[in-house]
């Protein structure tokens, strides 16, 4: 990680003109202002979600413009965790259907983790073969992989569903995980771009030392690409965490043993009585569902974000 210095500041001494210095300073203030504006735009909806999640859903629209929670209550969160009784829930405009939150959380963690490990690892292997090895038809196969990027998911979900049904994998973790476990075109494409830029000399030196491809891959390529791999891993994790349609498709509404959090959230939302949704409960559920990813990000994010580098791009 190269130290990020501010060349403009450092070199200002070299440019003696006072005016220029002031211009730079005004420019910097303006730049900061723009940056903070974006931070504000980013954060405001989250505040609004928080405010809504702490409101009483029935009363929500009696004061729609209030900046603070309307008739503040933790009812939304109680409904999400299944702590409210049916009467309590319906009195506040919820449905009171039972939710096994901790089970869904566990399921989501399992699914997202397995997909992330498998997909990143296998995609890295493939990316290595595309970026570094010479073999007949390589570019054609790569192009084929790339075209898979253009296939709308809706187009292939039905045949995949039939397949899972025939394999007897409906309602299993395997059924949810398999289509994403081996590769996604994006992951392969993403890593190939990085591997292309790993210095060839290092690789050849290792080869002269007698290292085989697996050794080069594990000992050289992977460590050298730790940053992009970490980036991809976290993106994959987030995407798997947020995946909704496929898990909904292959799981059974009457059996929630392998239900993941997003599906639970969707069902929670549509369980609300007719008319408008249980906004307070939905927002509470959304914030709660985002929390684990948030924590993950808080724990590793700094390191990951700081270390993301496109090494050696010319």
């Amino acid at each position: 990680m190269t130290a990020v210095s501010m060349p403009a500041t450092k070199t200002r001494a070299a440019a003696p003109a006072e005016r220029r210095g002031r211009r730079v300073r005004i420019g910097r203030i303006a730049a900061w202002a723009v940056l903070w504006l974006f931070v504000l735009i980013t954060l405001f909806p989250f505040y609004w979600m928080l405010r809504t999640s702490l409101s009483n859903n029935r009363m929500l629209f009696s004061d729609p413009s209030s900046w603070l929670p309307v008739a503040p209550t933790l009812g939304g969160y109680e409904r999400v965790f299944g702590l409210a009784t049916l009467q309590e829930a319906q009195a506040q405009g919820g449905s009171g259907a039972s939710i096994r939150f901790w089970l869904y959380l566990r399921n989501s963690v399992i699914v997202a983790a397995v997909i992330t490990v498998g997909q990143v690892f296998f995609s890295a292997m493939a990316a290595y073969a595309f970026a570094r090895l010479r073999w007949p038809g390589r570019d054609k196969v790569f192009f084929l992989f790339l075209t898979a990027l253009m296939v709308p998911p809706i187009f292939i979900h039905l045949p995949n569903f039939e397949l899972m049904k025939n394999l007897g994998l409906l309602n299993t973790f395997a059924g949810i995980v398999l289509p994403y476990l081996f590769m996604t075109p994006f992951a392969v494409f993403f890593l190939r771009q990085f591997f292309l830029n790993v210095s060839r000399e290092v690789e050849e030196a290792a080869m002269i030392d007698g290292a085989g491809y697996p050794r080069i891959f594990f000992r050289l390529i992977l460590p050298m690409s730790a940053a992009p791999i970490a980036t991809l891993a976290i993106l994959t994790y987030i995407n798997s965490w947020n995946e909704y349609f496929w898990p909904l498709l292959v799981t059974d509404p009457t059996n929630d043993d392998v239900r993941v959090l997003t599906v639970a959230l969707g069902l929670f939302k549509s369980q609300t009585p007719q008319g408008s949704p249980d906004w307070a409960g939905l927002m509470a559920a959304t914030l709660v569902a985002a929390l684990p990813v948030l924590l993950l990000f808080a724990a590793f994010g700094k390191r990951i974000v700081n270390s993301i580098q496109f090494s050696g791009l010319k």
């Binding site: 296998f122 995609s123 292997m125 493939a126 290595y128 073969a129 595309f130 090895l133 010479r134 073999w135 007949p136 390589r138 196969v141 084929l144 992989f145 898979a148 296939v151 187009f155 292939i156 979900h157 039905l158 045949p159 995949n160 397949l163 398999l178 289509p179 476990l181 081996f182 590769m183 075109p185 392969v188 085989g212 491809y213 697996p214 891959f217």
Partner: peptide, 27 residues
Amino acid sequence: DHRAALFFILPALLGFGVFYLWPTIRG
């Protein structure tokens, strides 16, 4: 190179064939 390539590409190729290519052909 060829042999190593096969080793490296195989899992992804399998996933690609079963979960992308086949459903696309069926589509």
